[in-house]
Design a protein around this nucleic acid. Structure first.
Lengths: 221, 221
DNA sequence: ACCTGAACACCGTTCAAGT
DNA sequence: ACCTGAACACCGTTCAAGT
C-alpha cells in the first residue's frame, strides 16, 4: 500500500550503484546528441544505446520504452520554464498591469529562447506523443500564477480574473509556439519581442474594468 | 523541361481510369477511419490498405510513403481554413478595427471548431512530421490578408502594419492551438470565444496610433 | 493502367544468460 | 545489481508477377 500510481512514462528504477548513475547520464547525453544530430525521425533505441556505449537491454532497464526516454527531456525543459516563470511572478507581485504584462512576456520569451535549438527539437518530441496531460498541467499552473498576479495588481479590477489569466496564458504560450513552429526568422522573433508585451498589456487593460487601466492605456505605449 | 519541381509529399500520380479514382477515394476514407478509430500511433499502412480493401502495393502507387498519405489530410484541412478566412477577409474589408478583430477571431474559431474531432486528429499528424514549410506559408498568407484589412480600416494608422498583422496572426493561431493541445474543456473554448475577440481588438487599438483607435478603446466593449 | 502479396530491411522490446 | 545481445513481432517499402 501507499504505492505510487504507476506512471508509465517515468523511468523504471533509480540507480543504486555508482556505475548505474553513470549509465543513466550517458544515456541521457546520448539521447540529446542523437536528437540534435539526426532529428527525432532518425532517433532509434539502437542508435542511442550505441552512442551511449551500452546495450539496448540496459536502456530498457531504466526506461520502459523509447517514449519515456524522450519524455525525460521534455520534463526537464518544462521544469526549466516553470521555474523561470515562477521567479518572474515573484518579482512582479504587486506591480501594475503594464509591468506585469511586459515582465511576463519577456520572461516567457527569454525562457523559450534560452536554448532555441534544443527548444525546437523538444517541441518536435512533445508533438510525437500525447502531451495533453502535461500541457494541461502546465497551462493550469501558468494560469494560477497569472491569476494571483492580477489579483494583486493595484488599481485593476477584473470582472472575470480566471478568464483573463487563462487568456493571457494562451496568448503567451500560443504566439511563441506558432512562430517557433513556422521556423520563424530572426525578424519574426524580433517582432514578437516587440509586440507580445504590447499585446499582453493591451489585453489586460481591456479585460480590467478599473479606471486606472483605461488611463494607463490612453497614456502609455 | 518545364517539369514541376519534385514535391516528395505529393501524391504520386493522378488517376487515369475510373477504378483508380475509386481506389484513391477508398484509401482516403480508410485513412480517416483508421485515424479516428486507432489514433496516429496505431495507423499503419497495412491497416489502412486492409480497411480500404486494397493491397499495400496499391497504396504505394498513389502515395510515395505513409507521410504523403497523412499529408493529404492536413492539406485538405489547411485549404478549408484558408478559404474560410479568405471569405471573412472579403466580408470585413473596409470595416473598423473592432469589427475586423471580432470578425477574424470568430471566423478563425469557427473554422477550427467546425470539426473538432478531425481537427485534433489532424493536429496530431501535423506534429509528427516537419510542417514548418506549410506553417510558414500559412502564416505568410494570413499575415498578408490581415495587413490588407488593416490598411483599409478607416481611421486607423499603424506605425508598422506588417508587425501588427504578424502579431495578430500569431495571437489567433497560437491561442487556439494551445487550448486544443491541452485538450481544452468546453469552458476553455467558451472563454476563448469570449476573450479572443477582445484580445485582438485591444491589441489592434494599442498598435494603431490613430486617434479613432483610442476613442474606440475607451468607449467600446 | 492498375493491382497483388511475398520478401526485405529495420525498429522497438524482451529475456535467458552472464558478471 | 547491473549488463549483454540474440530473438521476436511488427512495420514501411519494394518489385516481380499478374489482369
Amino acid at each position: 500500500m501507499n504505492r505510487p500510481a504507476p506512471d508509465l512514462l517515468k523511468p523504471r528504477k533509480t540507480p543504486q550503484q555508482a556505475r548505474s548513475a553513470v549509465t543513466i547520464e550517458a544515456i541521457h547525453v546520448a539521447t540529446i546528441q542523437v536528437l540534435l544530430a539526426d532529428g527525432v525521425g532518425r532517433l532509434t533505441t539502437t542508435r542511442v544505446a550505441e552512442r551511449a556505449g551500452v546495450s539496448v537491454g540496459t536502456m530498457y532497464q531504466y526506461y520502459p520504452h523509447k517514449q519515456a526516454l524522450l519524455f525525460a527531456l521534455v520534463e526537464r525543459q518544462f521544469a526549466m520554464i516553470e521555474s523561470a516563470m515562477r521567479d518572474a511572478a515573484e518579482r512582479l507581485a504587486g506591480s501594475d498591469l503594464e509591468t506585469i504584462a511586459n515582465g511576463l512576456a519577456i520572461a516567457w520569451l527569454d525562457a523559450k529562447m534560452a536554448d532555441r535549438v534544443a527548444s525546437r527539437a523538444i517541441y518536435g518530441i512533445a508533438a510525437e506523443f500525447d502531451m495533453s496531460q502535461h500541457m494541461k498541467r502546465a497551462a493550469t499552473c501558468m494560469t494560477g500564477m497569472i491569476e494571483d498576479l492580477l489579483a494583486a495588481a493595484p488599481g485593476a479590477k477584473f470582472a472575470d480574473p480566471a478568464s483573463a489569466a487563462f487568456m493571457l496564458a494562451a496568448l503567451l504560450g500560443g504566439s511563441v509556439r506558432v512562430v517557433m513552429e513556422a521556423e520563424g526568422s530572426e525578424d519574426a522573433f524580433a517582432s514578437l519581442r516587440r509586440e507580445l508585451p504590447r499585446a499582453c498589456h493591451a489585453y489586460l487593460v481591456s479585460a480590467s474594468s478599473g479606471a486606472a487601466g483605461l488611463m494607463d492605456q490612453a497614456v502609455g505605449g
